[in-house]
Write a protein that binds this DNA or RNA. Structure first.
Length: 231
DNA sequence: CCCCCCCC
């Protein structure tokens, strides 16, 4: 792979493990809209983003959990500050990008989910510049709270989840916006969350979600079954 | 090309 943006004739067969909503942005360089997908094949995972025309063209084509053949597009260096995906590169779809559903009978072998969990007792020593994946039992579900951001004066919705894992370490995870509002679980679900931020406010360590669509409740993965047995 | 992610 080259170190600058380039448009190779590459082809991958991969499952969509996460799809974001469409988001609009506006800054001094311009404005536009985008969505992104996380793609997984036998070798690992990579994030791909569709901007503007490609956002319109591909948003309804790419669906969560489905497998696609994807050809061509821009390969660029990933910024680990904004993803927990273990890949030095990211993709951006271009007008050259071709996407078609893959009907191959072997596609079921591609896993639905992929995580690199950090145990709670390791979080205090973990690099703050990278997002992490976490797995925990929800010991207590906080109420939905209304806040106002000091800097922007925006109204915020938040909800704290009080988690514990099998290192017997407790930690608080703060959900925001739709995720806070829509968390309607009861009892003690196990949650797996990809790409959470570590926060050091007030001397203690806590966690905060970024973005949307990444909380998996009672995921059907071996680590979750093991944690359920422990709890 | 996004990359803001907030509060105590």
């Amino acid at each position: 792979l080259c170190k600058f943006e380039c448009d190779f004739r590459w082809c991958i067969r991969a499952r969509v493990t996460r799809k974001t909503d469409i988001r609009n942005w506006s800054n001094k360089r311009g404005d536009g809209k985008l969505f992104s997908v996380d793609l997984m094949d036998e070798s690992g995972e990579i994030r791909a983003t569709a901007f503007n025309q490609e956002c319109d063209r591909l948003y309804s084509v790419l669906q969560p959990k489905q497998v696609y053949l994807i050809r061509g597009g821009i390969i660029k260096v990933a910024n680990r500050q904004f993803t927990s995906i273990d890949n030095d590169y990211e993709l951006a779809f271009s007008s050259e990008t071709q996407v078609e559903p893959c009907k191959d009978e072997n596609v079921h072998k591609l896993p639905l989910l992929s995580f690199r969990f950090v145990k709670f007792d390791e979080i205090p020593r973990t690099n703050r510049k990278q997002l992490i994946d976490i797995l925990g039992v929800v010991e207590k579900i906080g109420e939905l709270e209304h806040k106002v951001a000091r800097a922007s004066q925006r109204e915020l919705l938040k909800r704290d989840l009080f988690l514990i894992d099998d290192t017997k370490t407790a930690i608080t995870l703060t959900l925001w916006g739709n995720e806070a509002e829509n968390f309607k679980q009861h009892g003690h679900p196990i949650i797996a969350v990809k790409g959470v931020r570590i926060s050091d406010f007030g001397g203690g360590v806590s966690l905060s979600t970024v973005g949307d669509g990444q909380i998996h409740v009672d995921p059907d993965i071996p680590e979750a079954h093991k944690l359920r047995g422990w709890f």
